[in-house]
């Protein structure tokens, strides 16, 4: 069978589908001061998994606000800088009008994912941290 660290080089998704891969990628991103990219990506996935129902309305609103505040509101933040202005205002509108939809962070997540696929992921595969691990 293919060792996990070789599968990590196949695609970003195969890396993010493995706990050890995520940990190593996160250590690398932390060195580069951009671990927020990964945390945001997972926060978006986690948010989407919360099914809307009467018992978690408050939690979903609180969480949407927390994600917005931590990653998007500060225009100098690493995540915020990679998200298109139109996407940011869409999310801001959803939060302000309390229109909390499971898919409200999907576009932002796609933009961050594209950035990781083009930039941080290929750099990670050439990094000392990955090569030493293999």
């Amino acid at each position: 069978p293919t060792p996990p660290y070789l599968r990590w080089a196949e695609s970003l998704h195969s890396l993010l589908d493995d706990q050890d891969g995520i940990n190593l990628f996160r250590t690398f991103l932390k060195q580069e001061d951009c671990a927020d990219l990964l945390d945001f990506w997972f926060a978006c996935s986690g948010f989407r998994k919360l099914e809307p129902n009467n018992s978690n309305e408050e939690k979903r609103l609180k969480l949407a606000k927390a994600i917005y505040k931590k990653y998007i509101l500060d225009n100098n933040g690493i995540v915020s800088r990679q998200i298109k202005p139109a996407t940011k205002s869409f999310i801001k509108d959803c939060v302000m009008k309390q229109q909390i939809d499971p898919a409200m962070f999907d576009q932002a997540q796609t933009e961050i994912q594209a950035m990781m696929e083009e930039n941080t992921y290929p750099v990670f595969l050439k990094s000392d941290i990955y090569l030493e691990y293999t």
Binding site: Q19, G46, K62
Partner: peptide
């Protein structure tokens, strides 16, 4: 009451793959 950070952490962890 959950703090915002706890809520975020819980959300991030919920999306991570389980250890195989």
């Amino acid at each position: 009451i959950d703090s915002e950070d706890d809520l975020l952490q819980e959300c991030i962890s919920s999306a991570m793959p389980k250890k195989k």
